[in-house]
Amino acid sequence: MAEVAPPEPIETDQPQSEIPSETPQDQQQQDGDVDMTPKGEDQQEEKEKEDEGEKIPEDACETLYLQNLNEKVRIPVIIETLYSLFKPYRPLQPVIAHRNVRMRGQAFISFPDIQSANEARKDVSEFPLYGKPIQISFARGRSDRIVKKLEGVEKFDEHKAKRLEEKKKRRRDNPLRQKAQAKLKAEETGAVPAKKQRLQMPDEYLPPNSVLFIQNLPEGTTSDDLREVFEVHAGLVEIRTIPAKKDIAFVEFADENAATVAKDALHNFKIDGETKMKVTYARK
């Protein structure tokens, strides 16, 4: 049998043992079929994002500020519901909610510590309470109750005095208040600025509305008198008189159609047998 010559050695500047070989893993990475990023890095990034959301803001305090509460729900019901909703986070009594127009739909609730407040903020935020998602943030300052409990009476008195002083300052700096004071001062000195005339659409041409505006009422007309006149028409909802101006009133109906029927029927009606009352749509 003829002898087979062995293959000639590969010429290279490197030793044979140092020539890198291509592995299936290298081929896959070149082809782009496999993401070679370690899974642990993705998990680490997700964890870092979660930790970022868990961080407590530097200006956090033990009191939360709640907004977007349903204004149609009575204040005692809102207070009781909020206390029950936040009960797992140990809320402190009382829950603060006001009836005045400026604070309507808002509330304040305090907790024993910032950690509890932060947990409540994260867990309850956007909860659909009475059909509206609650918006929650940390209050701008600590409540009187928290300061008194954690700092003592002396610190509480100092905190309260500072808070009242800041409140007075905000009122002094309020642009609307400053404008009113400037107007009053101008009237006292006789330098009343000329008012810019603003054209308004006459009452008779206002668009349809479910609320009617009643004018030229005779002296002594009561809401009961108006009710007797307007309740003969279907859909009557409410009658609102104005104590400061007894010759006008507002009458609300369930819809525009019902209001229109009543307006057409009662315009120039003599409620006392002599004085014609004027009935138009109210301005929206």
Rank of each mutant, 00 (worst) to 15 (best):
Y89Q: 04
L69N: 09
Q178Y: 07
L66V: 04
E48N: 12
I96C: 07
F138I: 02
D123F: 08
A120P: 04
H98Y: 09
Y83G: 06
A97C: 15
A117T: 03
A107W: 05
R170D: 06
K183Y: 09
A161Y: 04
Y65P: 01
E45W: 11
F111L: 04
I56Y: 00
R177N: 13
K148R: 14
E50G: 01
Q44F: 11
I78E: 05
K72W: 04
T81S: 14
L82Y: 02
R170W: 04
I134E: 11
D123E: 14
Y130W: 15
K179L: 12
K185Q: 09
E119C: 10
K122L: 15
L64K: 00
V147N: 05
D173P: 03
D144E: 12
F86H: 09
K47T: 07
L176V: 13
N68T: 08
D173Y: 06
K168H: 01
R170C: 03
Q115F: 03
R140D: 04
F127D: 06
V153D: 15
I56M: 00
L85M: 09
P91K: 07
A180E: 09
Q106F: 02
L85E: 07
P128G: 13
L82N: 00
F111P: 01
Q135N: 13
L66M: 05
K160V: 08
Y89H: 06
K47A: 08
E45L: 14
A107C: 05
E165Y: 01
S116N: 11
A60T: 00
K167C: 02
I75W: 01
A161R: 09
I96P: 01
F108E: 07
I109V: 03
G152W: 08
P76L: 13
G131V: 08
Y89L: 01
K148I: 02
Q181K: 13
I134Q: 10
V101A: 12
R99H: 07
K185P: 02
K47R: 09
I146W: 07
K168P: 01
L164P: 00
G141A: 12
Y83T: 08
R74H: 14
P88I: 12
E48L: 10
L150P: 00
L176D: 13
T81K: 14
L82F: 04
E62N: 06
R74T: 14
Y65Q: 03
G141E: 13
K179E: 14
N70Y: 05
Q135S: 13
Q67R: 15
I114A: 03
E165A: 07
I134L: 15
F127Y: 15
A186Q: 14
R163W: 05
R163M: 06
S143P: 06
E158N: 10
E188V: 05
R163Q: 08
I96Q: 11
E126I: 07
H98E: 06
R171K: 03
D157E: 15
T189C: 10
E71L: 02
P112C: 09
N100F: 05
E45P: 02
S125F: 11
P76A: 14
P88W: 09
A60Y: 00
E52H: 05
K87R: 13
F108D: 00
R145W: 04
V77S: 11
A117V: 05
F156W: 12
Q181G: 02
S116V: 02
Q43S: 11
K185G: 04
